[in-house]
Amino acid sequence: MSRDINVLLVGVGGQGTILASRIIAYVVQANDLSVKLSETHGMAQRGGSVVTHLRAGEEICSPLIDEGQADIILSFEQLEAWRWLPYLKKGGMVVVNSQVIYPVPVILGYQKYPENILEKLKKNIPRTFAVDALALAREAGNERTVNVVLLGVLAKNLEFDQSFWLQALESILPARVLEPNKKAFLLGYQES
C-alpha cells in the first residue's frame, strides 16, 4: 500500500482536466499499478469548479480522495488550488498554473478574488510548484496544451520514467496535435 498515489486534479469546466487525468492513468497502469478515476459531468461543467480524483496503488477500492488525503493537487487555476487545499495531506505537493480565471461573483464585483494566492500557497506548502502554463503552452505552439505543460511539471516530481509519459501522449492524443503537446510536456518538465 506504500505506493498509493492520490492526485486531485482541479480547475474550471472546459480546461481539459479530464484528458490530463487519462494521461496520468495511462502512465500509472503502464507501471503495473491499479488506478481509479472519478470525474465531474453535467451541470458543473458549465464554467463551474471541476475536480477529478485519481487514485493509484496496488489495490484501490474507493474512487474518491477524502479531505487531508491527497498527495498532490494539480491545479489548472490559482483560486482552485486554494479552494481545494484542505484536501492535501501533510507533506503533499501542489502543482499550480498561475493563470487566473475569475468566477462570476468576482466578474460582477460581488466578491473579491483573493490576493497573493501563490505567495500564500508557497508559505503553507513548501512543495508548491507554480508555473505559467499558458505562456509555456503558447511557446509550445498551442494554447490548448496548458494541461500537458502541467503534466510535465508533475512528471518531473513522480517516480515514473519520462518515456512512459511520452508513450502515453502518443497513444492518447490525435497525431495532428502530438508535436505541440510533446513540446509542451518537455517545457513543463524542464521548468520544474
Binding site: 474550471v12 469546466g13 451541470m43 458543473a44 461543467q45 458549465r46 464554467g47 463551474g48 469548479s49 477524502d66 479531505e67 487531508g68 488525503q69 483560486l79 482552485e80 486554494w82 479552494r83 487545499l85 484542505p86 492535501l88 495531506k89 501533510k90 503533499g92 468566477p103 462570476v104 461573483p105 468576482v106 460581488y110 466578491q111 473579491k112 478574488y113 483573493p114 500564500k120 508559505k123 503553507n124 506548502i125
Partner: peptide, 24 residues
C-alpha cells in the same frame, strides 16, 4: 482517521468566491 491535513495559515474558506456553473 487517515486524514492528515496540512495546517493552513491565512486560510478562510469563506473568502473564497464560489464558482457556480453559468450560462456560456
Amino acid at each position: 482517521t487517515e486524514s492528515a491535513p496540512v495546517k493552513l495559515e491565512d486560510y478562510s474558506g469563506e473568502e473564497i468566491p464560489p464558482r457556480p456553473p453559468v450560462m456560456c
